[in-house]
């Protein structure tokens, strides 16, 4: 099935609905438009502590996409510094709780745990990979940037990014597909 994946990207606009998420398949190229919320370990720990205490969150997760990233500082006159994905596995312990609250997508790099993959399937979410290290290129798709929670965390604060055609690839879909597994299988050479 990977062979038949089109190289033409699909445009996605946030907030996203279940119907749209359910159509996505591993290997598809997607251009995200609308908003992305950044979050790394520290912000996730705070969000999950609020959830565990039954308190309100500083951001609405329903229909939104979280981007695992911590930007470098913006040079004067720029919207944002370089902003590429960080390793998603560090957020695996927290992610299922956010997915259960309606988080529709995550952008990062690297493999997810079986628990996250299960939650993606169960609650109709999706995991995208952005190109790790392509941080200068990615920063060009960010049109606005604003801290919406935890400014004390510096690069680990939650920023809301307004993005235009932010390029990602579907890695884990609602069908339980995993591009990291399938891609390796397809290209491993036996001899």
């Amino acid at each position: 099935m990977l062979e038949n994946i089109s190289m033409t990207p699909i445009r996605l606009k946030t907030p996203v609905t279940d119907d749209i998420i359910k159509q996505l398949r591993i290997g598809q190229k997607v251009l995200i438009n609308g908003f992305l919320y950044t979050g790394r370990d520290a912000a996730h720990a705070k969000l999950v502590a609020l959830i565990d205490n039954g308190q309100d969150l500083p951001i609405t997760l329903n229909g939104q996409i979280i981007y695992y990233a911590g930007p470098s500082p913006a040079k004067p006159g720029r919207i944002i510094g370089s902003v590429g994905p960080t390793t998603s596995g560090r957020m695996d312990l927290y992610a299922p709780k956010l997915i259960a609250l309606g988080l529709k997508g995550m952008v990062g790099k690297g493999k997810r745990s079986p628990e996250v993959i299960k939650a993606i399937k169960q609650y109709n979410s999706v995991y995208f990979a952005a190109v790790g290290g392509a941080a200068a290129l990615i920063s060009k798709t960010v049109k606005q940037c604003e801290v919406v929670a935890y400014p004390e965390l510096g690069p680990e604060a939650i920023y809301r990014l307004a993005v235009e055609d932010f390029p990602v690839i579907v890695v884990n879909d609602t069908q339980g597909g995993d591009l990291y597994e399938e891609g390796i299988k397809m290209y491993a050479a036996t001899s």
Binding site: I5, M7, G27, K29, A69, G70, P71, S72, K75, R78, G81, S82, V83, G84, V131, G132, G133, A134, A135, A136, L137, I138, S139, K140, P155, P167, I169, G183, Y187
Partner: peptide, 25 residues
């Protein structure tokens, strides 16, 4: 897909050099 990713990485390096910004955050 791999080719396209490598192209993004090359483009990224060029942008980083031209605009004097970090290639990776």
């Amino acid at each position: 897909t791999g080719k396209e990713i490598i192209k993004q990485i090359i483009d990224n390096a060029n942008i980083a050099e031209k605009e004097e910004v970090p290639m990776c955050q």
